[in-house]
Design a protein around this nucleic acid. Structure first.
Length: 1047
RNA sequence: AGGGCAGUGGCUCAGCCUGGUUAGAGUGCUCGGCUGAUAACCGAGUGGUCCGGGGUUCGAAUCCCCGCUGCCCUACCA
């Protein structure tokens, strides 16, 4: 042990400890140590290698690190590979920017795929390094050396292998679907790539009439010109309209509209959802000269099913004339997705341009018509070659000329944009590869029920999420990803799924070296079809979520399922990674790949807003670490909230954690510096001399350890950290250290002193052991200074254990009472301005706690500065209070009656009787002592204070002796304060001269001892000060104190 | 629209699962105190319709139902 001097700098400590761990390979040694213990399999949810970590990722890894450190200290062989997410569009984009590439074509023509892939790889690896270092600065211990990287061949092969399994189980298919498409980047985008990219835009808001085909039975003149009124914000999609959807259960009104057109009165019937008629007519009035309108009849949506209409742009798109011949095309169909939130209650449906439209189109068996090219230009019709959005105005104009426009305006709404080029996205039908999750959904839901979710309601949320997912589109028309291992025959269209590089090597007809399984290498491989044709690879790559979904088995290169004992990620991952890895394991192993799954929240700014660059409210974890040190941030993140709720990051609260750690550090330096001063060497022998307060805190730390093990097991990190805080501040610093302070001033080898040191030593060691999972640096730092030769090299080589034999709940309870009494005394003193420096000659405590007083009276005396304690049966006015909990157990619904009886009795008599007879029977109710609590009112003329077990009465009479003793303390305090001003060492001796106050010889001796001084008559003062001392009996002393250093 | 979570002093949050004294902490503010752990610490005061309404119960912050508000997820924004 070495003396600890100077102010604590937590950041410097981080660096020092990090170096210590690295130089001595502590992580590796800990791993080795646990090698033969049971496995604890943890799978790291891989962060994306985008550049830098943020507060959320820091939080995420802190949770992981804390739990895993705990598990290691429980002697588990923790499998803890770090993981990284490295493929995908975000990196492609960054690289494109680096090369100033504008379009997809440029990649192939300007720099070539090989070079491009190489750059993507470099970029990902570079970012991985940066982020890894940031994590290491937070003290995150993971297996960084053997991290799993999805860009490695064996990982890619795992992807292939699993996809082949999916194929074998008939869960892989190729299908035409509508998805997001960026016309500028010429690629499909995944749903998750679009998330957060909905931006407010001004779009056309157009109400259009679709004329009904004249029905023979509709001879009625009035119903001849009948129209469906639809609303759209994308007029350009009308070109591809095939259906109009209505809700089967809604009411639709036939609105007879009288309007004036070209000077003539025209009568038309418009079909609009009844609830929206007024709104639509209001809008229509602006563009049409409407004279009047009234509803002639209403029908249910389902009654409209099959009604045929004339496509409004039939002349502008010849193809629509062909479609008109198809059975269901250009008819009203039913769809539950139709809402009355806006529009007309009739939804224009273009199956090639909308996801739901697509579903409806398939259901009604009409063509999935999507007449645009990769760049978003029409490939046929009047506007052939025009970019679709540019056609909007012209479409509107055309409709107007055809008298089919009801209203044209603008609307502000949110619309998805390409996150890289900010172009509004289109919805477009393309052929993609799918995993048919819908076939195994029931199994997936069943698996989910076997998981231990933290908090448990995540299960509901997860299962609900799963219920909504459709088949998983796994193919992307991009470059940087796991290549789809699917080869298609050019002749017969048959396809084959390859499960490994080995298999590919066997089957390829040309000779391509397979050093790297990325594009474009694999693209060159040709296989031979059974029909004799050439098979070429589908040029797509896999969705990057497929990569991370493979983690449970690909990360350890396994072909069987090893269920993770624990995973934890942010709440956005419930429907992402929790799901993607489950989906892939369900396909391959028909099981869920984790046993315990915890969700955490998001890190928001102080006001609860998301941190974003544009708001300028981003808190960089590096900055926080630089200012406060890693442990404070770690502790803050785990204590700020229940993990599954969002954290509002606050520097103020971080400051509170700083106070906590300062207190911890002060407690530690207090202990160590005294120990060093006395050359203390810890020795179990001293445990034989423990005083009650020592036994108390030893019991406390063991009780705490026990609770903390339970908290970390769940894990409930908030109660873990809160309990630590409570112990450090209240039990250790504010109570125990206060209690033993006088013992540190005793002679070196006094057993009382040694046992106090031994206790402090024991408790601090226990404390830092349970603190170390969350605050590894500080704990290690303290450990390194306090450990003895025979102890393990690092704190993390120790086990967290409970010494059950030291737990004494009775003692803990008794000392709690003592604490309450001391607090009550201090409150009482405060009330009458009788400060602690002046003793109180006597206090009286209730007889019921006699044994507590007998055992621990010395603590009360010392802490309250009390001369004598009496225990008495108090007399006085009693009040009685029923103990509802006890009464409830026995009397249930009779409780009010019993309470009435209790309250109606004279409390003093009741108490007397209960004491004599043990119980009373009144009106058939048996009243026992435990049903009631008595309190004695404190008479006004007596100084008394209440605590949980009764009252404490204080005799505050001021005798000469008391004043004298108080004055002695007044003087001591002032001399001490002057010593401090002079910056003297604790051990340094001084000469003192006092004028203006007299003490007897004994008192002077006591003062000399406490202040390490010597009273003299003559002095050459180094420091002088005049003091005014006021006693409680209003005497005033003017005292001059002079101090001279003794060299 | 569906699902989940949350709503407790000025602020940040415990407590709720498993109903039972006077609903707790920290922080803020006011006052007082302490002093060799000291840029720390202690005490007192201040401050609450426990979101609202209904129900169950002898008893509800806690359990149930309905609603309000905020956040998140999913869907949608035709």
């Amino acid at each position: 042990m070495k003396e600890v001097k100077g102010a604590v700098n937590f950041r410097e400590m981080d660096k020092e400890i990090k170096k210590f761990w690295e130089d001595n390979k502590i992580y590796q040694k800990v791993k080795k140590l646990n090698e033969h213990y049971p496995e604890y399999y943890f799978v790291d949810g891989p962060p994306y290698c985008s550049g830098a970590i943020h507060l959320g990722t820091a939080w995420n890894k802190t949770i992981k690190d804390t739990v895993l450190r705990f598990k290691r200290m429980q002697n588990y062989n923790v499998l803890d590979k770090a993981g990284w997410d490295m493929h995908g569009l975000p990196i492609e984009v960054k690289v494109e920017n680096e090369f100033n590439i504008k379009s997809k074509k440029d990649i192939e023509t300007k720099i070539g795929t090989t070079e491009f892939i190489e750059k993507c790889k470099e970029f990902a690896l570079r970012n991985k390094e940066v982020m890894e270092n940031q994590f290491k600065n937070l003290g995150i211990w993971l297996d960084w050396e053997n991290a799993y990287l999805p860009i490695k061949n064996d990982y890619i092969e795992s992807g292939w292998w699993s996809l082949k399994k999916a194929h074998e189980k008939n869960l892989l298919s190729k299908d035409l679907r509508v998805g997001y498409w960026c016309p500028r980047c010429e690629t499909s985008l995944a749903e998750h790539e679009v998330r957060g990219e909905y931006k407010e835009v001004l779009d056309p808001s157009v109400y259009v009439k679709f004329k009904l085909m004249d029905k023979e039975e509709n001879e009625n003149e009035k119903e001849k010109d009948t129209y469906l009124v639809i609303w759209t914000t994308t007029p350009w999609t009308l070109m591809a309209n095939l259906l109009v959807s209505v809700h089967p259960d809604f009411d639709y009104a036939y609105v007879e509209v009288v309007l004036e057109r070209d000077g003539e009165e025209v009568r038309e019937t418009w079909i609009i959802a009844e609830a929206l008629v007024e709104e639509v007519m209001k809008k229509a009035g602006k563009n049409n000269n409407i004279k009047s309108y009234n509803i002639t009849k209403t029908v249910k949506g389902k009654d409209l099913e099959g009604t045929k209409y004339i496509h409004p742009l039939l002349e502008e798109n010849e193809r629509q004339k062909e479609f008109a011949e198809i059975e269901n095309a250009h008819t009203v169909v039913l769809g539950k997705h139709v809402s009355l939130d806006g529009g007309t209650g009739l939804v224009h449906t273009a199956p090639g341009f909308g996801e739901e439209d697509f579903e409806v189109g398939k259901k009604y068996n009409v063509p999935i018509y999507s007449p645009i090219d990769d760049e978003g230009r029409y490939i046929e019709g009047k506007w052939k070659g025009t970019f679709v959005k540019d056609a909007d105005e012209d479409v509107i104009e055309t409709l107007k000329n055809k008298n089919l426009l009801v209203s044209a305006g603008k609307i502000k709404h949110t619309y998805p944009h390409c996150w890289r080029c900010k172009t509004p996205l289109l919805f477009r039908a393309t052929e993609q590869w799918f995993l048919n999750i819908s076939k195994i959904k029931d199994d997936i839901i069943e698996h989910a029920k076997t998981v231990d979710w933290v908090p448990n309601w995540v299960e509901t949320r997860y299962i609900n999420g799963v219920k909504f997912v459709g088949d998983w589109n796994i193919s992307r028309q991009r470059y940087w990803g796991i290549p789809l291992p699917i080869w298609v025959c050019e002749e017969c269209g048959k396809y084959e799924v390859i499960g490994s590089a080995e298999e590919l090597k066997e089957k390829m007809v040309n000779d391509i070296p397979l050093d790297d399984l990325h594009k474009p290498t694999v693209d060159k491989v040709i296989l031979k079809c059974s029909c004799g044709g050439k098979m070429k690879r589908v040029p797509d790559v896999l969705d990057v979520w497929y990569d991370s979904g493979l983690a449970p088995y690909a990360s350890i290169n396994a072909k069987e399922l090893k269920k993770a004992d624990f995973i934890v990620e942010g709440n956005d991952q419930v429907t992402k990674w929790f799901y993607s890895q489950h989906a892939l394991s369900a396909i391959v192993f028909n099981d869920i790949p984790y046993k315990k799954c915890m969700m955490h929240g998001f890190a928001l700014d102080e006001n609860g807003n998301k941190m974003s660059k544009s708001l300028g409210n981003v808190v960089n974890p590096d900055d926080v670490v630089e200012e406060y040190g890693a442990d404070l941030l770690r502790y803050y993140l785990l204590s700020a909230n229940k993990a599954w709720e969002d954290i509002r990051f606050s520097y103020k609260e971080l400051g509170e954690i700083k106070s906590l750690f300062n207190t911890l550090w002060n407690s530690y330096t207090f202990a160590v510096n005294y120990m060093v001063l006395d050359n203390f060497v810890p020795n179990d022998e001293y445990m034989n001399y423990l005083k009650d307060e020592d036994k108390w805190i030893i019991s406390k730390i063991n009780s705490l350890t026990k609770e903390i093990i339970e908290d970390l097991e769940i894990p409930h990190l908030h109660s873990y950290t809160w309990k630590l805080k409570e112990f450090i501040l209240n039990d250790l610093s504010r109570w125990y250290i206060k209690l033993i302070r006088s013992r540190t001033w005793m002679e070196k080898d006094d057993p009382d002193k040694l046992s106090a040191y031994q206790t402090l030593y024991y408790v601090l060691m226990k404390l830092i052991t349970i603190l170390s999972p969350v605050a590894p640096h500080i704990s290690e730092k303290i450990y390194q200074n306090m450990k003895t030769e025979d102890m393990p090299e690092s704190i993390f080589m120790n086990k967290i254990t409970v010494d059950e034999e030291y737990i004494d709940k009775t003692l803990e309870g008794d000392i709690e009472v003592v604490r309450e009494i001391v607090d009550a005394i201090l409150r009482g003193r405060d009330k009458v301005k009788h400060t602690l420096r002046y003793p109180i000659s006597k206090i009286i405590l209730p007889k019921s706690i006699e044994n507590v007083v007998e055992k621990y009276g010395y603590i009360i005396k010392e802490q309250g500065n009390i001369k004598e304690i009496d225990v008495e049966e108090f007399k006085g006015n009693m009040t009685v209070k029923p103990n509802y909990r006890e009464l409830g157990k026995v009397f249930k619904s009779e409780v009010p009656n019993v309470v009435k009886i209790i309250n109606s009795m004279n409390p003093n008599e009741l108490s007397e009787k209960l004491k004599e007879e043990g119980k009373i029977e009144i009106d058939g109710y048996e009243i026992k002592p435990e049903y009631v609590e008595f309190k004695i009112e404190i008479p006004e003329n007596i100084v008394g204070m209440e605590f949980s077990k009764g009252n404490v009465y204080m005799d505050i009479e001021l005798t000469d002796d008391i004043i004298k003793e108080g004055l002695m303390r007044e003087v001591i305090r002032r001399i001490q304060s002057m010593r401090k001003d002079m910056d003297l060492d604790i051990e340094e001796k001084i000469k003192v001269k006092m004028d203006g106050i007299e003490f007897n010889e004994d008192t002077l001796k006591s003062i000399e001892k406490e202040v390490r001084g010597m009273f003299v008559d003559e002095i050459k003062p180094d420091y002088e000060q005049e003091w005014e001392i006021k006693t409680p009996n209003k005497e005033v002393y003017k005292v001059k104190i002079s101090i001279q250093k003794l060299l």
